[in-house]
Write a protein that binds this DNA or RNA. Structure first.
Length: 285
DNA sequence: CACTGAGCCTGCTAGC
DNA sequence: TGCTAGCAGGCTCAGT
């Protein structure tokens, strides 16, 4: 599923392609894809707008329009935003949920088999409210080792749910949290306030490294993810725990990896490399 | 505050 | 071969 590196890749590939183009028409084939406003109004307000740029905030694709509006796209699990320089000959994807026809005949398609993805049209002011609900951007200069140390020490939450919480750190998802915790040697159920400062500094470095490497590899393609040009990423071969089966040997120590469910999400870790610091609570068993 | 579970969805796979 | 049950999970909301 698309997380920060995948969304970043989509944005950087799409920006030079759609910047400066104007929306001529909007097609909506699954109403609930439009999260806000009502589909009718979405169309009214989008048509005629010129795209001035595209950027990322957390896992949101932010398409900046003229007249102080934005279109945000959240890919959720299986969403794909794909640009076509000219209308495809035939066979529109059966999973096409929305498309923007641009006035130069090019088009931007939103394809989403699972229908979890959402597209919204907001004013800059409304978008700022959305943006302010997200936590720190992990690749920004504001994300420092002391910043992360404080985020961990000020709460008593399990590490994995904490890192997945978009209001704490923005853009991390299941893949990169598992990978960063593995590299930092931190158990996914460890209580955040019990993580020593040196360990949190290590985690900081690994979060940055894991995301930076994934962006360099154009993202992780396990199933659906594609860039704005329809290309797969190659970061899947850099994964050390995510996507490997329970019992697969740890690449560091050969210990069989363990799979648990945390907050409804499958979680892989190495019991040898990621030991608990504090005593596990009853419920963690 | 921290945590749990339901609901949203459909393609894929394991098992019969 | 053909069918079905169960799994995958980001996010929001309601309840403990």
């Amino acid at each position: 599923m698309p997380e920060l590196p995948e969304v970043e890749t989509v944005c950087t590939t799409l920006d030079p392609l759609i910047r400066g183009r104007t929306i001529g028409a909007v097609g909506i084939s699954w109403d609930r894809t439009i999260g806000y406003p009502e589909p009718e109004r979405f169309v009214q307000e989008a048509v005629g707008r010129t795209i001035v740029g595209i950027e990322r905030r957390a896992k949101l694709i932010v398409i900046r329009l003229d007249l102080s509006n934005v279109i945000t796209v959240h890919l959720r699990m299986t969403g794909e935003l794909r640009f076509h320089p000219a209308p495809p000959e035939e066979s529109l994807s059966q999973h096409l949920r929305m498309k923007l026809d641009l006035t130069d005949k090019s088009l931007l398609e939103f394809i989403d088999p699972r229908k979890f993805g959402r597209v919204e049209l907001l004013t800059d002011v409304e978008f700022n409210d959305v943006s302010n609900r997200f936590g720190v951007e992990p690749l920004s200069s504001e994300f420092t080792p002391p910043t992360l140390a404080k985020l961990l020490s000020s709460r008593q939450r399990q590490m994995k749910p904490l890192l997945l919480d978009q209001s704490v750190v923005a853009g991390l998802g299941n893949i990169y949290v598992d990978e960063a915790l593995f590299r930092a040697g931190i158990h996914p159920l460890e209580i955040s306030s019990n993580v020593p400062v040196e360990h949190s500094h290590l985690l900081h470095a690994h979060i940055v490294a894991v995301l930076t490497e994934a962006i360099a590899n154009q993202g992780t393609t396990l199933r659906n993810y594609r860039s704005g040009l329809g290309e797969s990423g190659s970061n899947q071969r850099a994964l050390r725990v995510y996507g490997r089966g329970a019992g697969a040997p740890c690449l560091t120590c050969n210990t069989p990896l363990v799979r648990i469910v945390v907050g409804q999400r499958g979680t892989m870790y190495c019991p040898q490399c990621q030991p608990r610091i504090s005593a596990p609570r009853e419920l963690d068993r």
